[in-house]
């Protein structure tokens, strides 16, 4: 099963070429039963010191799919997300056991450069966090620091902003501070900034929780657009959002350790979003999605 999925990746990854854009998804609505995992967790445990935050996660994030991670607060979904691009490395004492495979390669392998992992697997955060620089410099920052060979930075900035559906709104004020934008625009700027370094996967940690409903809808529309080219993993507390944007949904919950009382997150159920919401196989999933806890 895994091998077959692996083969498919090879044939689907777009090859370098002018203007070639291969859409992995033939039509909206078609979704293979099994995700073609570009990013994959194999028995992943995440620890902070001696505290085990998440345990035993087996998950496949399908190529050009949106996968939502849902679950009550403290179930480790954000922790897991941050371990997918080694952002957790920055937390003192954090460590990951098990394997996180990106395109078949363990990102925690001894020879893997975390910097390159983060370039290939970008991240958008809960609170819009533009740099205190101009809009242009926010976009150009990533390509500059990662040493990307860029023919025209202006074109790259325009491309990234266009993909993030922000170009029309900011094209006349690229030199203005990013802080002059509204919260929703700032978040789209952060998405554009992530796109600019040409990642394969975009991780989003509750990207709409600080935004108003209208800005939220715009981000969700944008995610649908981005799905054509990127694989997206989103953590959300909003089940309707998960249902609106995600192809597949993973439900996490936490159980308390009998000895220490620490709460450890586990993956309860993973499947197509429609299936998770219409026919959840686990009682805890059904309880959570209809408000029994959290």
């Amino acid at each position: 099963m895994i091998d077959r999925a692996g083969e498919k990746i090879e044939s689907i990854v777009p090859h370098e070429g002018p203007g070639v854009r291969i859409n992995a998804r033939p039509a909206d609505g078609f979704l293979p039963d099994e995700p073609r995992g570009i990013l994959q967790c194999e028995n992943v445990d995440v620890y902070y010191g001696s505290f085990r935050a998440v345990t035993g996660v087996d998950l496949k994030f399908g190529l050009h799919e949106i996968t939502a991670l849902i679950g009550p607060s403290g179930c480790g979904k954000s922790t897991l997300l941050r371990s997918l691009n080694r952002m957790n490395d920055l937390v003192d004492g954090a460590r990951v056991e098990g394997r996180v495979l990106f395109d078949g390669e363990d990102i925690y392998g001894s020879k893997v450069d975390a910097i390159e992992v983060r370039r290939r697997i970008g991240m958008v955060f809960q609170k819009p966090n533009p740099f205190p620089k101009s809009i242009y410099d926010n976009i150009a920052y990533g390509p500059r620091v990662t040493g990307m060979r860029v023919d025209s930075m202006d074109d790259l900035v325009e491309e990234a902003l266009t993909k993030a559906a922000l170009w029309g709104e900011v094209k006349d004020k690229l030199k203005q501070s990013a802080y002059s934008l509204s919260g929703g625009q700032q978040q789209r700027l952060c998405i554009a900034r992530t796109i600019a370094v040409k990642p394969d996967v975009i991780l989003m940690d509750e990207p709409c929780s600080a935004l108003d409903p209208i800005a939220t809808v715009r981000i969700e529309d944008l995610m649908h657009e981005l799905r054509r080219e990127y694989t997206i993993v989103i953590v959300t507390h909003n089940m309707q959002q998960a249902a609106r944007v995600a192809d597949r949904t993973a439900f996490f919950t936490a159980f308390a350790d009998e000895g220490t009382g620490d709460r450890t997150g586990v993956l309860v159920e993973f499947g197509k979003t429609t299936q998770i919401f219409e026919h959840p196989t686990d009682q805890r999933t059904e309880d959570y999605i209809s408000g029994r806890f959290g």
Binding site: I289, S290, G291
Partner: peptide, 16 residues
Amino acid sequence: QNRAVRARVAIGRLRA
């Protein structure tokens, strides 16, 4: 669209 979710969410809101 998303009737199942909206039904579940409505149940959640009722419980809340």
